[in-house]
Amino acid sequence: VTLFVALYDYEARTEDDLSFHKGSKFQILNSSEGDWWEARSLTTGETGYIPSNYVAPV
Rank of each mutant, 00 (worst) to 15 (best):
V58H: 08
Y49R: 14
T44K: 03
S19N: 06
S52Y: 08
E38Y: 15
G48F: 04
V1T: 13
G34S: 13
S52P: 07
K22Y: 05
T2I: 13
Y8H: 08
G23F: 05
L18P: 00
R13Q: 14
F4P: 00
I50K: 01
N30Q: 08
N30E: 07
S32C: 13
S24P: 00
T43F: 09
G48A: 03
S41P: 01
T44Y: 03
P51L: 08
E38A: 08
L18D: 00
D16L: 14
D9F: 04
T14F: 15
V1W: 14
S52A: 13
Y8D: 06
S32E: 11
S32W: 10
T43A: 13
S52M: 09
T2R: 12
T43L: 12
V58L: 14
W37F: 07
Y54E: 01
Q27I: 15
T14C: 15
K22H: 06
S24K: 04
F4A: 07
Y8R: 09
V55L: 12
E38D: 05
E33W: 10
W36A: 05
S32M: 12
F26R: 00
T43V: 11
E11I: 13
S24Y: 14
S41C: 14
L7W: 03
R40T: 10
S31K: 13
A12C: 05
S19C: 06
Y10W: 08
Q27R: 08
T14N: 14
T43G: 08
A6Y: 02
T44V: 02
S24V: 10
L18T: 03
T14A: 12
Y54Q: 04
I50Y: 00
A12H: 05
S24Q: 15
G34C: 12
I28Q: 01
N30T: 08
E38G: 04
L42A: 06
L3C: 11
S19V: 02
P51V: 02
T47D: 04
L42N: 04
L42H: 05
K25W: 14
G45L: 06
T47Q: 10
K22F: 05
S41R: 07
H21P: 09
Y54K: 06
Y54S: 10
F26Y: 02
T47R: 10
Y8L: 08
Q27A: 09
I28G: 00
F4V: 11
V55H: 01
L7F: 03
W36I: 07
Y54W: 07
A12L: 02
I28D: 00
N53K: 13
K22W: 05
L29A: 05
D16Q: 14
T2G: 11
D35R: 08
T2Y: 12
L3H: 09
V5S: 04
T43K: 09
V55R: 00
L18Q: 03
L29E: 05
E38F: 15
E46Y: 07
F26G: 00
G45A: 05
T43W: 07
P51R: 07
G48C: 04
L29Q: 05
A56C: 09
W37T: 02
P51D: 04
G23T: 02
R40I: 13
Y49K: 13
Y8M: 09
K22I: 08
D35C: 14
R40S: 05
D9Q: 04
G45W: 06
A12V: 02
V1A: 12
T14H: 14
Y54C: 09
N30S: 10
S19T: 09
H21R: 14
D16W: 15
E15D: 12
E15K: 13
E46I: 08
E46H: 09
Y8Q: 08
T2L: 13
T47W: 09
E38Q: 13
N53L: 09
T44I: 02
T43H: 11
P51Y: 06
S41A: 09
D35G: 12
A39V: 14
Y10I: 01
N53G: 11
I50A: 00
R13W: 07
L3E: 09
Y10G: 00
L29S: 05
R40D: 01
W36E: 03
V55T: 03
K25L: 15
Y10C: 04
W36H: 07
Y49Q: 08
G34A: 14
V1F: 14
L7K: 05
N30V: 08
